[in-house]
Design a protein around this nucleic acid. Sequence first.
DNA 1: AGATTAAAGTGTTTATTTGACACAATAAAA
DNA 2: TTTTATTGTGTCAAATAAACACTTTAATCT
Lengths: 246, 246
Amino acid sequence: MVFETGNFLESVSLDCVVFGFHQNQLKVLLLKMKYSHERALPGGFVMKNETVEQAASRVLKERTGLDNIFLKQFMVFSDPSRSKMNPAVKDLVESGANPNLEWFAQRFISIGFYALVDFTKAVPTPDYFSEKAEWLNLEEINSLIIDHNLILQKALNTLRLQISYQPIGYNLLPEKFTMPELQKLYETILGKTLDRRNFQRRMLSFDILNKLPETKKGGAHKPPYLYEFNLENYKKALENGLTGGW
Amino acid sequence: MVFETGNFLESVSLDCVVFGFHQNQLKVLLLKMKYSHERALPGGFVMKNETVEQAASRVLKERTGLDNIFLKQFMVFSDPSRSKMNPAVKDLVESGANPNLEWFAQRFISIGFYALVDFTKAVPTPDYFSEKAEWLNLEEINSLIIDHNLILQKALNTLRLQISYQPIGYNLLPEKFTMPELQKLYETILGKTLDRRNFQRRMLSFDILNKLPETKKGGAHKPPYLYEFNLENYKKALENGLTGGW
DNA sequence: AGATTAAAGTGTTTATTTGACACAATAAAA
DNA sequence: TTTTATTGTGTCAAATAAACACTTTAATCT
């Protein structure tokens, strides 16, 4: 048995909404369950000697191969009926593999995390219950197990709020990126278009970008300059917050 | 025994930072432990058939006598060593009362809530572990048990952030209040002074206040007008957020 | 090779918001 | 009745945000 349930804290689970960005699309990492074939957010349990943040890091390391993922808890989901329709339990029954069915069937409150990762670096990897892990575009996402649609929606709301007073992008973009790419990221998260010139002026005013002397050639038309984040200032901005909203 | 520990979810506790406002001071509701005499935030456990929000409401109803308290979860505290120095356990040993000591001595992750209540209406009431419940001014608060200082600090930070894009006051002030009182509340939470005229202009622009024809007499000097919140707009603002910061 | 195409670079003007600031009115207290 | 200190109120200047158009460029097409 893969799960040594005795190592875990009772009653507590966690679910992660992992956001990535690729080809101007906001993506979410989802699992496909082995037996029910339903989709689910990656999640896990908390070991007896780790914090919930460490647990989420551990889980995401397993699901993406990445360390040092940007990770934030945003809400606890605790509707008493939420666990009842967990298909993982059904899956366990069908697999006949698990001696500790009751443990999985217990009531869990789940701590919701959202994570921002570099799409190109993550290697989606299924877990014990799933046959596949893959990125889906936001619009492609239909019904998820249990309350995972709700969790996703709350995560998205939180991200949208966050973006107004925190820098975002370092964890979602490759090291070097163009201003139009950054703008698309913002537009995608916010769900609206922004003025190109005002966006650039605003971004530059935050003083978290280094403009590089190179441009990104290869597209048809005028090549855009490349930028990188000025990590020192970026971190300062993370702590102190930015101003205003879009 | 008061605590039927079997009714509670394992591993999960909650702690509440209850804010009140009185005489231009921000107050926090604290308990004084029976045996160790240390101070603690009011807290409790989650019953098997309730959400964590319902649990927090229940606990606060017991500690204040109030229903329908404004309540918000803001963070989960889960350092594995946090439970180790819980004086409640020591208290239980000394009281000799509890047959289920192990339950209390287990590791808990704690869900932090903050609450905003009308100081004049709350009746501080101690719990099983405490001899006294009382309001303390923020500056009067010294060392609290376990990680409760941290929880308090995070709650305060959250409140300060929240105040920039959410209306605040309905839950902290009496029904009718004056503009100077409202301003003092903001100044106290933010920890800085604000320009009287700009504050008023800004507040009125949110369109969440009704100016009443009455003034509040009794003080020496010119009596200020009374206001009440326009609940309909207040709730809209809670949902949609305000703009900018101070 | 030259023409065409569409995205990217860039600055100014206007409107809106914020910040600073002073004097008159009032009720209580002296 | 005088004094006192708080409240009510408006304007002007500065900063910020919003609207907006033309030139430059690399790739593609012919």
